[in-house]
């Protein structure tokens, strides 16, 4: 028996919004430690890794490890039927071929449930090696989204250059060149507005705008985003999900032809 309950459907809606542009379907691996999802986008350029800890749920029970393959378009249709403040509960029997998603209004006067067919998806788990990153940048998630959106107008690629002075995002195309520099913030009243750079050595890497923009669909989940970079390894873009877990996106760099 698997049962996981969250106080607010809005969190699950935001999580789905953060992954459904990259993934058509995905397997949710449930165990007593929580829910894990790892999947590559169709073109195998990026990897999404979602971790939701069992202690972050209002109620969590998972008697046996369970892999639930879900069509994310179908799940989005179901989540559209929930009000943001509704409680949401996911339930499945051991070895079931369906999952039930139930919404309850705060006053318990409206209860709706949706049974969704599960899919057998080919599981291709990738091993992610531990990396000592050259640069780790923490910055406001909204600012990162804005930069990715703005620079996508100029080029298919963004060059991210990180030094101890700051981080520079550049794009160059037919229109010309765009450069956006962010300096490390000295002192800020609000932690969520800070730009913080931890640098071992400077790094310059090129990434596809299209994927960066897809990752920023996670912006509503978190006030800050963390970018971890190292020469010739995938970029890690991490959004914390408060008291519940995190979503990490890995993006392979572009290299010169």
């Amino acid at each position: 028996m698997f049962e996981a309950r969250l106080g607010q459907a809005t969190i699950l809606k935001k999580i789905l919004d953060a992954i459904k542009d990259l993934l058509n379907e995905a397997t949710f691996d449930c165990s007593d430690s929580g829910i894990q999802l790892q999947a590559m986008d169709n073109s195998h350029v990026s990897l999404v890794s979602l971790t939701l800890r069992s202690d972050g749920f209002d109620k969590f029970r998972c008697d046996r490890n369970l892999s639930m393959g879900m069509n994310l378009g179908s799940m989005a249709k179901i989540l559209k039927c929930a009000n943001n403040e509704d409680n949401v509960t996911m339930k499945a029997q051991d070895n079931a071929d369906t999952v039930t998603i139930m919404f309850e209004s705060a006053n318990q006067e409206k209860v709706s449930d949706y049974e969704m067919k599960l899919m057998n998806l080919d599981q291709e788990h990738l091993g992610i090696p531990e990396t000592d990153f050259s640069c780790v940048v923490r910055m406001p998630a909204m600012e990162f989204a804005r930069i990715c959106r703005d620079l996508a107008q100029f080029s298919e690629s963004v060059v991210i250059c990180c030094t101890k002075e700051g981080v520079k995002f550049s794009a160059s195309g037919d229109v010309g060149t765009a450069n956006i520099k962010l300096a490390q913030t000295g002192s800020v009243d609000k932690e969520e507005e800070a730009v913080i750079i931890e640098m071992q050595e400077p790094v310059t890497l090129t990434f596809a705008c299209r994927y960066l923009n897809a990752f920023t669909k996670a912006t509503p989940l978190s006030t800050q985003v963390q970018l971890s970079m190292c020469a010739d390894v995938p970029l890690v873009v991490e959004y914390a999900i408060k008291d519940l877990g995190h979503i990490r996106y890995y993006l392979a760099p572009k290299i010169e032809d």
């Binding site: 350029v45 390894v233 572009k254």
Partner: peptide, 12 residues
């Protein structure tokens, strides 16, 4: 050139 994520992370 866009590299594939599988050229960095190997299947388990």
């Amino acid at each position: 050139m866009q590299k594939s994520i599988t050229s960095f992370f190997k299947k388990q």
